[in-house]
């Protein structure tokens, strides 16, 4: 963890796809900086030879057999869609 971890709020908010007002930006970066400063506490710990924990229990190979179960009826699947046409969800043009 770097010592000067002033967060690039612009860039991170863009990655997170959240539009922020300039007030929100300045308030948030202050708060996040102090949270990160606190989090840097973890640097006190030597974890060189420690395995990371991704799951609380060490379990492997939990799977299902390849059997088709039932789908959602189409009207259920689309009932919350903000906008639909021809049984598909309308989205604004994707700019690539």
């Amino acid at each position: 963890m770097s010592e000067e971890q002033s967060i690039d709020i612009e860039k991170v908010a863009d990655l997170a796809r959240i539009a922020l007002t300039s007030q929100e930006k300045s308030k948030l970066s202050g708060q996040l900086d102090s949270i990160l400063e606190y989090i840097n506490k973890l640097n006190e710990l030597d974890t060189d030879n420690v395995e990371p924990t991704a799951h609380p229990h060490s379990v492997f190979n939990v799977w299902r057999e390849d059997k088709a179960e039932k789908e959602l009826p189409i009207e259920e699947a689309l009932k919350n869609a903000p906008k639909q046409r021809q049984n598909m969800i309308v989205v604004p043009k994707v700019v690539e």
Partner: peptide, 29 residues
């Protein structure tokens, strides 16, 4: 918003090892 942005930051390029991986190791401890 605060937590999503913090979470996005700790996973972002260049910070993963320092934050997320580190935290997973501390979780082991």
């Amino acid at each position: 918003k605060r937590r999503v942005i913090l979470g996005t930051y700790v996973l972002s390029s260049g910070y993963y090892d320092a934050y997320y991986l580190k935290a997973q190791k501390c979780r082991t401890l």
